[in-house]
Write a protein that binds this DNA or RNA. Structure first.
Lengths: 168, 168
DNA sequence: TAAAACTTTCAAAAATAATTGAAAGTATAT
DNA sequence: ATATACTTTCAATTATTTTTGAAAGTTTTA
């Protein structure tokens, strides 16, 4: 199998997954292309390889940079901008999760906080059920934070890894 | 604040989050309604409260049942079907993650496995870079699995929780 | 068995999200 | 200063996903 084919397959699949998780297909595809590429690519390179418009590349590239997944490079003597992906996959995943947590989980946290400090009026049993649910949800979100801490640790804490093995 | 208002707010927010993560708004809304409701609801109840069509309720309810987030109930003497949500939030989250892992992560795993056992042809350095990336990605997905194991454990392993505190 | 009560299906419509591409904007080189 | 090389923007278009609603299907009751 030729490298080019392999790349294209990877780009396609990555795009489909992104799409299923609410990330624009093109954004995921660009990311996949940069991940699999040895050296920085220009806007033209990207346009050509994944066959999308200049505007699309520009827009999604900016987004990738915002998410800290891609950075701009300047090639000596070249005027064009080049882009390369952050290749530490762990960082990649952390950044994606971090970014989405920030964007889409925040509203829940705010809502939960708001609902918790309000006195809710209604039938006793119904209100109790509702409050219980809200509380559980908050506990859960706290657990998520715990979990992401562990994740950070997993990256380089050998002792911790062994710990897990033992507990399995 | 009245209970009904609080519910509606929760339903709205939950719907928006679902939507941002690639889950149909109505599906998330129905789920939120059932979560916040004390007792099982009928299709009509749901239609009325969140103002969506019968077909929509039916379709998404089936999906929620598939995901193991909701189950059918029968009220004595009633012909209609009623629905209630699994209210253990931890289970809820586990099921959502499980389900999505099954659906959307599987294709990556298959692709990675496929790409790993193929001999890829191209410039040495480029191929090396590509293979490295594929390998890292696989490691990462393995870590995700590890992480979900830990999560399960977090639920009820006090010792483990303390462990984390110490390491913090 | 037929009517009533309810559920499911699915083609069409609506809503939403992603993409294009050409025009406007910027920076660099001569 | 102006031409060139490149980047950004955004209204319009296109693609995709979600939702509707009425017809077909199913089960229960009498």
């Amino acid at each position: 199998m030729k490298l080019e084919e392999a790349k294209m397959e990877f780009i396609q699949t990555w795009g489909a997954i992104g799409s299923a998780w609410g990330i624009p297909r093109s954004m995921a595809q660009i990311h996949a292309l940069l991940l699999s590429s040895n050296e920085p690519l220009s806007t033209e390179d990207v346009m050509e390889t994944i066959q999308i418009s200049r505007g699309n590349v520009n827009l999604n590239m900016r987004e990738l940079i915002n998410w800290n997944l891609v950075s701009k490079q300047n090639k000596l003597g070249e005027r064009k901008e080049f882009f390369s992906a952050n290749t530490d996959i762990m960082d990649v995943a952390q950044n994606i999760v971090q970014e989405r947590k920030k964007r889409e989980l925040k509203p829940v946290l705010e809502l939960l906080a708001d609902l918790k400090q309000q006195k809710i009026q209604g039938k006793k049993e119904e209100v109790e059920h509702f409050n219980k649910m809200i509380n559980e949800l908050e506990d859960f979100i706290k657990q998520l934070d715990q979990l992401s801490e562990i994740w950070l640790r997993l990256k380089d804490n050998m002792f911790f890894k062994k710990m897990i093995k033992v507990l399995k």
